[in-house]
Amino acid sequence: MPSSQGQAVKKTKNHVSEPRKALTIPYAAFLVLFVIFPILLIFFYAFTDKQGNFTLQNFQDVFAGDASNATFKVIGTSLGVAALTTVICIILAYPIAYILANSKYNKNKIVVYLFLLPMWINFVIRTTATRDMLLLIGIDYRTMPWVTSIIGMVYNYLPFAILPLYNTMLKLDKSQIEAAADLGANPFDVFVKTIIPMTIPGIVSAITMTFMPTMSSYVITDALSGRTITLIGGLIENKFLLSQLNVGSVYAILMLILIGASVVFERHFTEQGGKR
């Protein structure tokens, strides 16, 4: 008797849960049609010409002869700008996040909001304002495009680096830090051997939050370098404006490869962080 009752309950439960599962169908259809299928189309377009015939011409346009130098220069520039921006963002964001999350220094959440507030100003307006303000204090984007571009990038992505670091630091186990200090570790050792290992997940997500978007933020480098620094994103936009979607797809694939590599990097380090 009890077992049959159990089955009856199970049956009604399944019966109830079916329509709830179905709620995900429109969302799944949306993802397939507007996210996954378009990415597959990029691969299709990269290997075909405008008439839809198979060709490797698009890859030749990007990698053959002189074009390959230009392409690799842009890839190098993108990686360089992204790496420099990320390093500066982490160096600045780390102490900020630590201080904001530490109740010894800051008990007020409003200061955290103050760091996020500029994000709500339209970013094109913000970038323009940065350019003009730097010009005003003598940092000219026409003579120092690298300096202004990196300042603009750091300015834009600093909040994205602060947030994940701040969130991990809030959960920091303070007793471990105190224990290390009590047991005779000097402040440097405390920092390197207890605080940094505990915040690795935050550091990794701060890196991915700044590194990846930087490579495609061609709008910032366009405005702050007077179009002298080109990123991969800028090449894709250029091909879009020229309606050369097939060659643009090749650049998009390059970008996807870089994204894939950074996802692998993130997985590797977050898993290590989880094992600790």
Binding site: L31, F34, P38, I39, M212, S216, Y218, L245, S249, I259
Partner: peptide, 20 residues
Amino acid sequence: ATQIPIVNAEIVMALSLVIL
């Protein structure tokens, strides 16, 4: 699938939609 648009570069999604 949900993570794809979060991780993907915005410009790649933009181009893929235009192609679609």
